[in-house]
């Protein structure tokens, strides 16, 4: 038990099922980014997956839109302690992108327009655990929230859900990405409070 602040009452929306330790619920949708919001034209957008052999698979915006789309509702958890329940998204499962990809490397590094990177083990992005999404709450995803398309990995802290995603490459080691080199945890499970180093 921590230090008690006798005058502090708090709003106590905390004892909610589904809320990881140390998180509080918000109705708004805060933004965490390291720099300016890039503006990306979907005519130039491309998503590229590069394997250990150097072979790359890529999808244009139209090809991406023609992949099987999923609509789903999940809770999201930001390392800065807010969580938001019941967010509604539309996009393509990572399983779909990996369907014809031959790789045996266990880790990935996602990269974004604007230079941001984040590392993710394969076991955290396959089997219905991660998507490339382009709609939030029935609307096209706003640039400030990662539009035109972002990665969504809802079971990990939200910095892992790279905004303005442009591709990934396979890695044999779990090298750290951008936030992970800047003080944040290599993995980022909110239920284990894997926030910082």
């Amino acid at each position: 038990m921590g230090i008690i602040s006798s005058g502090f009452r708090g709003r106590r929306n905390k004892d909610q099922p589904g809320l990881p330790p140390g998180q509080y619920l918000t109705e708004s949708f805060p933004v965490l980014s390291a720099g300016p919001t890039p503006r990306i034209d979907t005519a130039e957008w491309e998503f590229q997956l590069t394997t250990e052999t150097g072979q790359s698979h890529s999808w244009s915006w139209d090809e991406f839109q023609n992949l099987p789309q999923e609509e789903f509702t999940v809770d999201i958890h930001c390392v800065t302690s807010w969580s938001k329940f019941g967010t509604r998204w539309k996009g393509v499962s990572l399983d779909t992108f990996f369907q014809d990809v031959d790789t045996s490397h266990p880790y990935t590094m996602f990269s974004s327009y604007g230079g941001y990177t984040t590392n993710l083990p394969m076991e955290d992005i396959l089997n219905g655990k991660a998507w490339i999404v382009h709609q939030f709450d029935g609307e096209d995803l706003e640039p400030a929230h990662g539009g035109p398309a972002r990665l969504l990995v809802p079971h990990l802290y939200f910095w892992k859900s790279a905004k303005w995603v442009r591709g990934l490459r396979m890695m044999d080691r779990n090298d750290p990405g951008f936030w992970e080199t800047n003080g944040y945890n290599l993995h980022g499970d909110p239920w284990l409070e894997e926030r910082y180093w």
């Binding site: 230090i3 008690i4 905390k14």
Partner: peptide, 9 residues
């Protein structure tokens, strides 16, 4: 912050 009943923020 921890309230007297253990609630934290």
């Amino acid at each position: 912050l921890t309230a007297p009943d253990g609630y934290t923020a």
